[in-house]
Simulated scan of single mutants.
Amino acid sequence: MKIIHSIQELRKELHMRRFDKERISFVPTMGNLHEGHISLIHKAAEKADCVVASIFVNPLQFGAHEDLESYPSTPAEDEAQLIETGSVDFLFRPRVEEIYPVGQENHTIVEVPNISDVYCGASRPGHFRGVATIVCKLLNIVQPDFAVFGNKDYQQLMVIRKMVEDLCLPVKIIGADTARAKSGLALSSRNGYLTPEELKIAPNLYKALSQAKEAILEGQADIKGIEARANQFLEQAGLQPDYFDICNGKTLEPALKSDQQLVILAAAYLGKARLIDNIVVNADINA
């Protein structure tokens, strides 16, 4: 695995790979890697001859009072994990100055309308503007055939898919299954903020999602009632709900009785951490 810090050097290396007619897959991360990230690497390796991973903590997607300064950083451990996979050809680790040479305030912004303003977008104004901007920029730098993202960030994945489609970017976006601990807790770098006691409480977010899915599959059509019971369950379990919404799986609009592809999106606060998760439901809630 070769570690690269400059855009120019990475493009030079990848030009040679394309000259050899190799397919390229890409996994962008913010570091502090865990098993979920590694599963994305394995997925990327299945799709292409050359795998590029990136580690860049993007300041543009953090709000004024969010955890940019304290976001966990484990560079040596990250590199060791990527090397151990045996699948990563290049690790791109740019400095902020390499990505935003004229400063964030003067940088062109990519914004995906409507879908970026709800759920996590409402709780974190400007977050998806930062995500869309950095992902668009990284895709233009790497120019991969495939890019792999986790399904855990369902709304983020939909924002990225729409951006790629709207801007006619020649890359196939692949969603990978959410990696979970045995408890059901979705793996996340921010899980490191949780105390041992909070780690016992956190899996209740996935439990609430699973209960809501079961209610829908049983034929319960009172969407607001299911959501209300889930929020009550989370509060009683010791989490502070941010949102818990049953949505159309393709548009993220509030679910209708005629919808068959659904997704339940949830976010909750626990101690210093904000946890997000989702579960997909394929059912006709009017049945």
Rank of each mutant, 00 (worst) to 15 (best):
Y71L: 12
P28Q: 06
L139N: 15
E105A: 15
V52F: 03
L194R: 13
A212G: 06
K162Q: 14
D145V: 10
E218S: 12
E9V: 12
Y119I: 06
G150M: 10
S123H: 14
V52D: 12
Q104R: 10
I276D: 05
K224N: 04
N204D: 00
R229V: 06
E218V: 04
D177E: 14
L185S: 02
A215M: 11
V110F: 11
G103D: 09
Q240T: 07
A228S: 15
A237D: 04
I109H: 02
V148C: 15
K207R: 11
R274D: 12
L199N: 13
D277P: 03
K12C: 13
E165Q: 09
Q240D: 03
G192S: 00
Q220W: 03
A76W: 03
K137G: 02
K43Y: 06
S54H: 10
I226V: 05
G192L: 07
G175D: 13
L209V: 06
S54G: 05
Q232G: 07
D242N: 11
P94H: 11
L82Q: 03
G121H: 07
K250E: 08
N32K: 07
A186Y: 07
V159N: 05
I216F: 04
L262S: 08
D245I: 11
C247A: 11
L187K: 06
S6M: 09
L209I: 00
D153L: 11
A221Y: 08
G36T: 02
A228R: 15
S210G: 06
E198V: 06
E69Y: 03
S189G: 07
V159R: 04
C136F: 15
Q261L: 07
I264T: 10
R95W: 09
E198R: 01
G121C: 08
C136G: 14
A208Y: 00
L262T: 10
L68W: 02
L82C: 04
P59W: 01
D277H: 08
P28I: 01
Y206K: 07
G130R: 09
E253D: 13
L187G: 01
T195Q: 01
S73T: 14
R274C: 15
N32Y: 02
D245N: 14
V57T: 09
K200W: 01
R161N: 15
A212T: 09
L234Y: 01
G36M: 02
P72Y: 04
A186T: 00
H42A: 03
A255K: 02
K47V: 00
I4C: 14
K162I: 08
K162T: 13
R229F: 00
L185C: 04
K12Y: 11
Y193C: 07
S258A: 15
P113E: 11
L60S: 09
Y206I: 05
C50D: 14
E46W: 04
L68G: 01
R180C: 09
G175E: 11
